[in-house]
Computed example of a mutant assay.
Amino acid sequence: MSSFTQFDGTGDPSWHLDLYAQKMALDDHNDPWMCKVFPTSLIGAALEWFRNRPHKSIPDYETLCTMFLAQYCGNKKQKKCIASLFTIRQKKGETLQDFLSRFNMKASEITDCHPTTAIETFKLAMIQGTKFYTSLVKYSPPDIQTLNARAQIYIRLEENLAHRAQHAIFVTVENKPRERVSNSKSRKSQHASAPAI
């Protein structure tokens, strides 16, 4: 039998039902079995709630789901609206990779988010003047997948430039002591070759 993420009465009931259904995918046609196994996914107060159901009060799995959602409806995670995307802004110094990950995570929490709205919101949130921003203004992508694919090109470019900048600093720092050593040697040779007065 599959092991379940156990619900203790404090999480989102819809999320728990989705996880349970996913684990029971091979048996979801077997209604009595879905009901009998369900209490193994509960713990603590939630398990106590199930045990206190009157005998034969759960005729089928659909009724069980309805009762479960009604009991824990206060815990249900509220769906985020598109307005929450307008609060995102790319921070100064934040890499495109980090900003894209943060934006995509926020966008995934919104149901029925229209691609055009998401893309326009992304452009508004970006630091203006970057090469990627200019690319999006000139050629707006038709969907989020295309935006993400194009972003990977600019992420690689950004990482390459950052790597080259670090390498340049490293080379400069490495060369400084050698220059000092060579300068001190040349001074010594000048003193040695200079005629005594």
Results as ranks from 00 to 15, higher is better:
residue 69 L to H: 11
residue 80 K to F: 09
residue 126 M to R: 01
residue 147 L to K: 00
residue 125 A to T: 01
residue 158 E to F: 05
residue 94 E to H: 03
residue 128 Q to M: 13
residue 58 I to S: 04
residue 133 Y to H: 15
residue 64 L to H: 00
residue 21 A to G: 08
residue 89 R to W: 07
residue 152 Q to P: 05
residue 152 Q to F: 06
residue 35 C to G: 05
residue 94 E to G: 02
residue 123 K to I: 15
residue 153 I to G: 06
residue 73 C to I: 11
residue 35 C to N: 02
residue 105 M to F: 11
residue 53 R to A: 10
residue 61 Y to H: 09
residue 147 L to W: 00
residue 135 S to M: 09
residue 89 R to P: 06
residue 19 L to H: 11
residue 103 F to V: 04
residue 130 T to C: 06
residue 137 V to D: 08
residue 51 R to L: 09
residue 86 F to S: 14
residue 78 Q to A: 14
residue 45 A to S: 13
residue 94 E to T: 06
residue 131 K to L: 12
residue 157 L to F: 13
residue 43 I to P: 00
residue 75 N to S: 05
residue 48 E to D: 14
residue 67 M to R: 10
residue 60 D to W: 05
residue 40 T to H: 10
residue 20 Y to R: 04
residue 50 F to L: 07
residue 77 K to I: 13
residue 128 Q to K: 15
residue 109 E to M: 11
residue 133 Y to F: 13
residue 91 K to M: 11
residue 151 A to W: 01
residue 99 F to G: 00
residue 46 A to Y: 01
residue 82 I to V: 15
residue 45 A to K: 14
residue 147 L to R: 00
residue 55 H to L: 12
residue 25 A to P: 02
residue 54 P to K: 15
residue 86 F to W: 11
residue 107 A to M: 04
residue 110 I to S: 00
residue 152 Q to H: 07
residue 28 D to R: 12
residue 44 G to D: 08
residue 114 H to G: 07
residue 97 Q to W: 08
residue 158 E to H: 05
residue 47 L to E: 06
residue 151 A to I: 02
residue 89 R to V: 09
residue 65 C to T: 08
residue 64 L to R: 00
residue 30 N to H: 11
residue 50 F to N: 07
residue 121 T to K: 07
residue 141 P to Q: 01
residue 72 Y to N: 03
residue 44 G to L: 02
residue 61 Y to Q: 02
